[in-house]
């Protein structure tokens, strides 16, 4: 099986590669259109800022490539957000795979910190991506923007309000949390994705 991690100007690419290595899977980190097209599984990671990431993807024609992929694709954190239609982070048009808006967390309560950093629970788990994962398992989140609950939601989390911590449409999956940093739960989810 050929697993690729899409290389672009985002932050956690190495962490995802190391997480795969920990579970005994070798992966190729690449921005080569041909390598990505011929992969069995594609991981689209990301920590960073939406508009500069989209600009980078467009310059390399990776935007068109990603949304036309037919094999299972897993977006992580910013990767998931970029798979949506639009992000209010610097008013960025994204890939439009999930028909969802990405918005900033807003609260008038000064004791609630934005971004959310830390471990929170995932519930209402759907699809084989969460096979063997118990309801209310903990996952590690770092994000200031979120996607509301909608028709593509396959997991929810509560921070300020209930929102989508995972999305699914056709061959595309997205996780708002970081499976590569979510201990055994995260490793199981990565295994599940690779078994799709």
């Amino acid at each position: 099986m050929k697993t690729v991690i899409i290389k672009y100007n985002a932050g956690n690419i190495q962490s995802v590669l190391y997480a795969l290595e920990r579970i005994g899977v070798s992966a190729l980190v690449t921005d080569s259109i041909q390598e990505i097209q011929t992969a069995d599984k594609v991981i689209f990671p990301g920590v960073g800022e939406a508009s500069s990431a989209m600009q980078y993807l467009r310059e390399r024609k990776l935007d068109t490539l990603i949304k036309n992929l037919k094999q299972p694709v897993l977006g992580i954190c910013l990767g998931m957000q970029l798979m949506c239609t639009h992000s209010t982070e610097n008013n960025t048009n994204c890939l439009g795979i999930f028909e969802e808006q990405v918005k900033q967390f807003e609260t008038s309560d000064p004791t609630i910190k934005v971004p959310q950093i830390g471990w929170n629970t995932i519930t209402a788990l759907k699809t084989p991506l969460f096979k063997g994962i118990a309801e209310n398992s903990f996952a590690y989140f770092v994000h200031g923007y979120y996607v509301a609950k909608g028709k593509h939601t396959i997991a929810t989390t509560n921070y300020i309000q209930e929102y989508s911590s995972a999305l699914h449409k056709d061959n595309f999956y997205g996780l708002q949390f970081h499976p590569e940093k979510s201990a055994l739960v995260g490793e199981q989810i990565i295994q599940n994705f690779l078994s799709l």
Partner: peptide
């Protein structure tokens, strides 16, 4: 460390 542990 990064190769060994699965938390941040």
């Amino acid at each position: 460390i990064a190769h060994k542990i699965n938390i941040p």
